[in-house]
Design a protein around this nucleic acid. Structure first.
Length: 451
DNA sequence: CACCTACGTCGCGCCAACAT
DNA sequence: ATGTTGGCGCGACGTAGGTG
């Protein structure tokens, strides 16, 4: 099993950085990166854990979840799985403590564009045996990603294989689920009643007709009652402000439950953010301490802190104000494949790899605006020279209270040439840089320097 | 804009297959 | 024989698109 257990998570309580829930292909690529390079090769929101060594409730308490910009929450845990027997391809999913992760649907993951089998993903549901011996679902769900062709096997171990597990709670309300179970029981009873009616049919014809009518009436009543129960539970779920739905598939095709509660601009922002995460990740040290956290630690009271304190959904909504620069960045990022984006997914929620010509305040010796100031490199009216820069900026626009102004911190800046995907010619010192939201450039004049 | 229908996704329960 | 895994079908749920 993996080295880590449900020990108290050493990470600070701050919300771990995550852009959006990775797609299946991105998840399998992250697993491959972990296999090849260990924890340092993947974003910090992926943690080692003993998924099959502890109950999900213990796991969820012991580890910090990753919260995406769209509010989705999930626990990304890398674990090792053990095969049932030396010749048995099946996985032992019995959890210490009595529960079992029950496998449900699975499907192969095929890479694009060569359509090679890269792994498999399986949906699992955590079950406990009830007093009557029947399996009861606890509402804990998991998606398990495994590499294909034995690529995930742990060298030197017998039957151990590495897997990426995404643990989450069922988006379906627990009470509603219980109500549904009752419904099913009622339906079963109705079927039994129908069988009884069938048997009665063998009796004199008049009695058989009576029995069929009774059975039909019972079914109709059952159906009507079921709808009432479902409606009542739905209303109760809304009143109780149930947790946000967790997206577990590609954010480009969010499941319906998510989409129904998500404004269109928010979905657009998520898509943009995913498309924009195209630049190489920062150095390993940055993976340990996300830039956002580092920046927040540098100043005791900064706009960064205010932004960090904003609920995820609000922050995502704020990020939904796509700008020309962001659109350009998304267009540039679109030239990369999903796997490339996954490989480059940084530990920070990066909003855009902004490909745009910006007035560079003396490259290499940038004179950044003060964090509390209202100016930014983009907002400069002068344009000493035209350069094409690839900027890696924070996902969360930093909003000025009482103002429509917002900007994003720049975490990486590279001078580039040519067209997307660009030839990088020089990395620039961007410490302290902020990118003014181009949606507000009217206050400073339109695009002082265009590409 | 409201309503209806078709469709896709996912949770759940059942059960066959397999190893011990 | 027993326990466990995983495949499969069903139904619920929600969305997208069409229509009036």
């Amino acid at each position: 099993m993996a080295s880590a257990g449900p020990d108290p998570d050493p990470q600070p309580p701050a919300r771990p950085p995550l852009f959006a829930i990775p797609s299946d292909l991105e998840a399998i690529e992250l697993l491959r990166l972990w296999k090849e390079g260990g924890a340092a090769a993947v974003p910090s929101w992926i943690r080692p854990a003993e998924v099959y060594g502890h109950s999900p409730s213990e796991l969820l308490v012991a580890h910090q979840p990753a919260t995406a910009a769209d509010g989705a929450v999930a626990w990304f845990l890398v674990t090792t799985v053990r095969h049932v027997g030396p010749k048995d391809p099946r996985i032992c999913r019995v959890v210490k403590g009595g529960g079992t992760w029950k496998g449900e649907h699975s499907h192969p993951l095929v890479s694009l564009p060569d359509r090679a089998l890269v792994g498999t993903v399986r949906s699992l549901s955590y079950t406990l045996k009830g007093d009557d011996g029947k399996e009861l679902r606890t509402g804990h769900l998991m998606r398990e990603y495994r590499l294909s062709g034995g690529a995930g096997l742990v060298a030197g171990s017998a039957g151990l294989e590495i897997a990426l597990c995404v643990v989450y709670n069922s988006p379906r309300d627990a009470e509603a689920a219980a109500a549904k179970a009752l419904e099913r029981a009622a339906a079963k009873a109705a079927k039994e009643q129908e069988k009884t009616a069938d048997r009665a049919r063998r009796a004199p014809q008049a009695d058989a007709i009576k029995a069929r009518r009774a059975a039909a009436m019972a079914r109709r009543r059952g159906s009507s009652k079921a709808q009432e129960v479902a409606a009542a539970n739905a209303a109760a779920a809304v009143a109780a402000d149930t947790p946000a739905w967790l997206a577990l598939v590609s954010a480009t095709t969010p499941p319906r439950g998510q989409a129904s509660a998500t404004p269109t601009p928010l979905a657009a922002a998520t898509t943009l953010q995913r498309a924009a995460a195209a630049t190489p990740p920062p150095q390993a040290a940055a993976a340990v301490t996300p830039p956002l956290q580092r920046a927040a630690a540098a100043a005791t009271t900064t706009p960064l802190q205010r932004a960090a304190a904003t609920p995820p959904l609000q922050r995502a909504a704020a990020a939904a104000t796509t700008t020309p620069l962001q659109r350009a960045a998304a267009a540039a990022a679109a030239t990369t494949t999903p796997l490339q984006r996954a490989a480059a997914t940084p530990p920070l929620q990066r909003a855009a790899a902004a490909a745009a010509a910006t007035p560079l305040p003396r490259a290499g010796s940038a004179t950044p605006p003060p964090a509390s100031g209202a100016s930014s490199p983009v907002g400069s009216a002068s344009c000493p020279q035209k350069r094409q820069l690839l900027l890696e900026v924070g996902a969360d626009p930093i909003l000025m209270p009482g103002s429509s102004l917002s900007w994003n911190q720049v975490y990486d800046a590279q001078q580039v040439e040519g067209d997307p995907p660009f030839k990088r010619t020089k990395r620039l010192d961007c410490s302290g840089w902020f990118l003014l939201d181009a949606g507000h450039t009217r206050k400073f004049g339109q695009s002082p320097c265009s590409a």
